[in-house]
Simulated scan of single mutants.
Amino acid sequence: MANSIRTAIVTGAFRGIGAALAKRLAADGFRTVVNYASSPTDAESVVAEILANGGHATAVRADVAEPEAVRALFDQAEAEYGPVDVLVNNAGIIKLSPLAEVTDEDFQRMIAVNLTGSFNGMREGARRVRDGGRIINLSTSIIGNYLPAHGVYVATKAAVEGMTHVLAKELGSRGVTVNAVAPGPVATELFFAGRSEAFIQRLIGDIPLGRLGEPADIARVVSFLASPESGWINGQIIKANGGRN
């Protein structure tokens, strides 16, 4: 990534952790593509903040569950800013339910966004991220805790971790590193949805640092993985969870 103009795509970057990742990479000097599926106002707000702070960003709509949309996302990124150096597969959803009560619709949608979406990104990234670039996937530290009501979500993220390890070996000869970040509980709208205050307080009690994470905590890790300094880190799952597990 010696070229002074560097380009990054962040999927699901319209709010929460994704928005923080896009803002941080833009602050690091990346021309950043803020991907969204259905929230153009939120995505444009992220872009506006980046531009106001002197960065470069554009919002691009694409449902990562659709292969053609992911190809078009790369096409637009390349047309706007040139070859892609960093891909962050952040887009994800969660629906909490005991396994026996998971609906077919919720199962299929989590598979579509979390697993198929990440696969679509990794496949396209493997073909089009520049030599020496970075592919960074988002997993979860719930893997290892296996909390009730998180079964399908955990399954999708465990599959993403498996592909992360394999793709790292497949792209190593090109100097492209592939890693995943596994956040612990982070104070976002996605995290709070469907969880009781009592449940949240129990989670906080399990964290040695005594607090929920903030999106900026995850952004700092992704910033490092996107930088030249991380060049010897490859095929790793990095837990950013305050020491919870």
Rank of each mutant, 00 (worst) to 15 (best):
V64D: 12
A62N: 04
E49T: 10
S39T: 15
H56S: 11
E66L: 05
A52R: 13
V70E: 14
Y36A: 14
Y36H: 09
N53M: 10
V46Y: 03
S38E: 05
E44F: 00
S45T: 09
R61L: 10
A43E: 11
E44C: 03
V60A: 05
N35C: 07
A59D: 01
E66K: 00
T58K: 06
S45C: 13
A43H: 07
A37M: 09
P40R: 04
P40N: 06
A69N: 03
L51H: 00
S38M: 07
A65I: 09
A57I: 00
E49D: 12
H56D: 14
G55K: 07
A37N: 07
R71W: 05
V70K: 11
E68F: 15
H56I: 14
A72L: 12
A57M: 04
N53R: 10
A48I: 00
G54Y: 02
S45E: 08
T58G: 09
N53D: 15
S39Q: 02
A48E: 15
Y36R: 06
I50R: 07
G54D: 02
A65T: 10
V47E: 09
H56G: 07
R61H: 11
A52V: 02
P40F: 03
L51S: 14
V46E: 07
V70L: 08
N53S: 15
T58E: 11
T58I: 02
N35G: 08
S38H: 02
V47S: 05
A62V: 01
D63P: 08
L51F: 04
S38C: 12
N53Q: 11
V70N: 09
S39F: 01
T58C: 08
